[in-house]
Design a protein around this nucleic acid. Structure first.
Length: 696
DNA sequence: ATAGGGTTAG
C-alpha cells in the first residue's frame, strides 16, 4: 500500500520560520502575496464575487493592488455599493485605486459619484482625466467631456483618442476630424477611431477614404482596424474592397479573430452573398451572440426569414442566450413572414429572459404587432413601455397610420410633442399617411405646414408623395397637379403614380392621361400604372382606350404581378392565387366559399361585376370573382381556426373592390374580425364594416 | 494579473 503524498508537503517549512527581519522575508512575503493574488484572480476571472470576498477577508492586510482588483471585480458585476464600501475602508489609496473607483462608478451608471471622486482625489494623472472624459461621453455629456479635455494639464495620444471617440459617439464627426488633425502623434488607434466614427455616423464612404490614407501610409493594421473597415465596406456595399481585405485578413492570420470574423459574416450578408456568410459562420471556432445575431440579421436582409427564425432556434438550442439585438432581428423576420404567432412566442421569450423592458426590444415588438395586423396589442405594448425614444413614437404612429387609426396617430403626435420629443422625417411620413388613409385634408395640410417649418427636419420626396395622395384622394386633382408643378424638387414616378391612383378614385381621365404619361416616361415597366389607366378607361366605358392600353402593355412585354394572398397559421404560410386548387384542403375551402356565397345572397349582396370585366388583371378575367385569392385565404382561415377568433390575411396587391365589399358582409355573417393587409394598408373588417371607411 | 484610447450584430 502506498502512502498518499501530503497535500501541502512544504507547508510548515515555507510559511512561518523566517522572522520579518530576515533578508529573505521580504521575498517570501511577496511570494505569499502572489499566491493570494493568483487565487483571487481566478475567482475574479470567473466573476465569483462572493467567493472572492470570502478569500479577500482571509488575507492579512491586503495590498492596495488586491483592494483595487476587488473593486474592479465588483464593478464588472455591477455591485457599485460594495465596490465603494471597500474603497471607503481602504487604509491607503494610490492613484490607480482612485482611477479604478472612478471607472467603477461610471461603468455602473453613477456619473455624479464618478465626478465627485474625480474632484476630490488628491493627485490626478492623465489616466484619471481620460477615464472621466470617456465616462462623461458615454452619458452624452459631451460638453463636460470637452471641457475636461481642454483643461487637462498634459495629454498623451490615448487622451486625444478618447476625445476623438467621444465626439464621434455623440455625432460630432466634424469636431472629431478637427481634433484628429491636431493630434500630435496619431497612432493606429486614432485612425481606427476616425474610421469607425465616420462609419457609425452614416459616412461610410468617408471612412473608406480615411482607410485608403492609412493604408498608403504603410501603418501596420490591427484586427480592430480590419473589423471597422470591413463594417464600413458592408455599409457602403463595397463588396470588392471587402473581399480584398478578407484575403488580407487570411494572410495576416486575423480572419479567425472573433471581431474580424463577425465583420466578415456581416459584410457578405449585407452585400447579399448570404451563402458566403453562412460558410464563414460555420468555419468559426466559437459562435457567440454577436456573430449569431449577424447571421440571423443576414438571413433577414436576404429575405430568408424562415431560415432566420430557424437559426434563432438553433442558437437557443445550443445554449447561447439571445440579447436585445438578437430579438430585434428575429422579430423583424416575424414581420417579414407576418408570423404573429411566432412573434408572440418571441415576446414570451423576451419576458422570460427579462428583456421585455429594453427599449429596442419594445420598439421591435410594437412594430411586429402592428405589421402583423394586431395594432391593439402594439398599442398595449407601447403604453406599457417605461422608457420610449423617438423610434418608439415613430413605430406606434406609423403602426396606427397603416392600420387606419388616423385620429389616434395624430393624438400620439401631440403627446410626443408635449414631452418635447423632436419628430423626424419618419414621424411626418407616418402622420401624412394617416391623413391620406382617412381622407383628412385639413389635418394633412396642417401637418405638411408643420413639416415645412420644422427646421430640424428635411422635406423629402416621400412627404410630397403623401401630400399629393391626400389632395388626390380628397378629390382636389387640379390642386394636386398644381402642387406637383410647384414642388422645389424634381417629381419622381411615385408622385405621378399617386396622382394616377387618385384619378381612378375620381374617374378623371384628363389628369390620368398626363399623369400616366409621366409615369411611363420615367418607369416604362411599371405594370401598376398600366392597370390603373386601363381601369380608369374601363370605368368610363372607353373600351377602345382599354384595349389600346392592353396592347401597349403586351407590346412592351409588361406582365402584371400575379395577385396572391396568404395566411400564416402555426408558423406555416398558406398561399393562394386566384382559382387555386393546389391546397390539400381545396375541397373544404371551396365548400366553404359556396356556403358563403349562399349566405351573401340571402343578405342581398350583389357582386360588382365591373371588377371582373374591366380589369387588365388576367387572374380576374380567368376565374369568377368568388375565387379571388383573398377569398380563398379567408375561407381557409375560417375552417382552420377557432370560432370567433380574428383572421389575418395578407395580399401582395391592393384588395379588389368586389372582395372588399364581400369581406365586409362575410365578417358579419361569420361574426369574426377579419384583418386584411394589402399592398398599401390594413383593412379591419368587423360587423359588416371596414376600418378604411371604404376609401383606400 | 490594480487604472485610460480604437474592434463585431442591432
Amino acid at each position: 500500500m502506498r502512502r498518499l503524498p501530503a497535500l501541502f508537503p512544504n507547508h510548515k517549512a515555507t510559511v512561518f520560520p523566517l522572522k520579518t527581519s530576515h533578508p529573505l522575508a521580504a521575498r517570501r512575503c511577496k511570494e505569499v502575496g502572489s499566491h493570494w493574488k493568483a487565487a483571487l484572480f481566478r475567482l475574479l476571472e470567473s466573476c465569483d464575487m462572493d467567493e472572492a470576498r470570502r478569500l479577500f477577508t482571509r488575507i492579512p492586510s491586503p495590498s492596495v493592488q488586491l483592494y483595487t482588483m476587488m473593486i474592479v471585480g465588483y464593478s464588472r458585476t455591477n455591485r457599485i455599493d460594495e465596490a465603494f464600501r471597500l474603497f471607503d475602508g481602504m487604509p491607503v489609496r494610490d492613484t490607480a485605486a482612485w482611477n479604478s473607483m472612478i471607472k467603477a462608478a461610471l461603468d455602473c451608471g453613477d456619473v455624479s459619484l464618478g465626478r465627485k471622486l474625480f474632484d476630490e482625489m488628491p493627485e490626478r494623472n492623465v489616466i484619471s482625466w481620460t477615464t472621466m472624459i470617456n465616462g462623461l461621453s458615454r452619458f452624452g455629456w459631451i460638453d463636460a467631456a470637452e471641457e475636461l479635455f481642454f483643461r487637462m494639464p498634459q495629454r498623451d495620444t490615448a487622451a486625444w483618442n478618447a476625445m476623438i471617440s467621444a465626439y464621434c459617439d455623440n455625432g460630432r464627426v466634424k469636431d472629431a476630424r478637427l481634433l484628429f488633425e491636431k493630434t500630435p502623434q496619431p497612432n493606429v488607434i486614432s485612425w481606427t477611431a476616425m474610421i469607425g466614427g465616420h462609419d457609425q455616423n452614416g459616412e461610410s464612404d468617408k471612412a473608406l477614404l480615411l482607410f485608403h490614407k492609412l493604408w498608403s501610409s504603410g501603418t501596420k493594421l490591427t484586427p480592430s482596424t480590419y473589423a471597422c473597415v470591413l463594417t464600413a465596406c458592408a455599409n457602403a456595399s463595397e463588396l470588392g474592397l471587402g473581399t480584398q481585405l478578407h484575403s488580407h485578413t487570411v494572410r495576416t492570420g486575423y480572419s479567425s479573430d472573433t471581431f474580424v470574423s463577425t465583420s466578415l459574416v456581416n459584410l457578405y450578408a449585407k452585400c447579399k452573398q448570404i451563402e458566403d456568410s453562412i460558410q464563414l459562420f460555420s468555419e468559426r471556432k466559437e459562435r457567440d451572440v454577436v456573430s449569431w445575431t449577424a447571421l440571423i440579421t443576414g438571413y433577414g436582409l436576404n429575405d430568408k426569414h424562415e431560415d432566420a427564425l430557424d437559426e434563432f432556434n438553433k442558437m437557443i438550442a445550443s445554449g447561447i442566450r439571445p440579447n436585445q439585438s438578437t430579438f430585434t432581428s428575429a422579430l423583424n423576420s416575424c414581420c417579414g413572414l407576418e408570423a404573429l404567432d411566432g412573434g408572440k412566442k418571441l415576446h414570451a421569450t423576451t419576458v422570460k429572459l427579462g428583456l421585455e423592458l429594453d427599449v429596442f426590444v419594445g420598439n421591435s415588438l410594437v412594430v411586429m404587432y402592428s405589421k402583423c395586423g394586431d395594432v391593439e396589442d402594439g398599442l398595449m405594448l407601447f403604453d406599457s413601455m417605461d422608457r420610449r425614444n423617438l423610434v418608439s413614437w415613430n413605430s406606434i404612429i406609423v403602426g396606427c397610420a397603416q392600420n387606419g387609426y388616423a385620429t389616434l396617430a395624430l393624438k400620439l403626435f401631440d403627446d410626443m410633442r408635449q414631452i418635447n420629443v423632436q419628430p423626424d422625417e419618419i414621424t411626418y411620413t407616418g402622420l401624412l399617411t394617416a391623413c391620406s388613409h382617412s381622407r383628412m385634408l385639413e389635418r394633412g395640410r396642417h401637418i405638411f405646414h408643420l413639416l415645412k417649418h420644422d427646421s430640424s427636419v428635411q422635406v423629402k420626396l416621400e412627404h410630397y408623395v403623401c401630400m399629393v395622395d391626400i389632395l388626390g384622394r380628397c378629390g382636389n386633382l387640379e390642386e394636386a397637379e398644381e402642387f406637383i408643378r410647384n414642388m422645389p424638387v424634381e417629381p419622381n414616378s411615385k408622385i405621378w403614380l399617386a396622382l394616377l391612383g387618385a384619378c381612378r378614385m375620381h374617374a378623371n381621365i384628363e389628369v390620368a392621361r398626363r399623369a400616366s404619361k409621366k409615369v411611363f416616361d420615367m418607369e416604362p415597366d411599371n405594370s401598376a400604372a398600366y392597370v390603373l389607366l386601363s381601369n380608369i378607361y374601363a370605368s368610363a366605358g372607353r373600351w377602345n382606350d382599354v384595349s389600346q392600353t392592353r396592347v401597349m402593355m403586351r407590346y412592351r412585354g409588361i406582365t402584371k404581378v400575379p395577385g396572391s394572398s396568404w395566411i400564416t397559421l402555426k408558423e406555416t404560410r398558406h398561399e393562394f392565387v386566384c382559382g387555386d386548387r393546389s391546397h390539400p384542403m381545396a375541397m373544404e375551402i371551396y365548400k366553404k366559399l359556396d356556403w358563403l356565397g349562399v349566405k351573401l345572397k340571402e343578405l342581398g349582396y350583389v357582386c360588382d361585376k365591373t371588377f371582373a370585366l374591366h380589369d387588365v388583371d388576367d387572374e380576374q378575367k380567368e376565374a369568377a370573382l368568388a375565387h379571388h385569392s383573398e377569398k380563398l385565404a379567408i375561407a381557409f382561415g375560417l375552417i382552420s381556426t377557432v370560432e370567433g377568433s380574428t383572421i389575418r390575411v395578407m395580399k401582395n396587391l391592393r384588395v379588389c373592390g368586389d372582395c372588399h365589399s364581400a369581406i365586409k358582409v362575410i365578417s358579419q355573417v361569420v361574426g369574426r374580425r377579419i384583418v386584411l393587409r394589402d399592398a398599401t394598408r390594413f383593412h379591419h373588417f368587423r360587423d359588416g364594416l371596414c376600418s378604411c371607411g371604404d376609401c383606400w
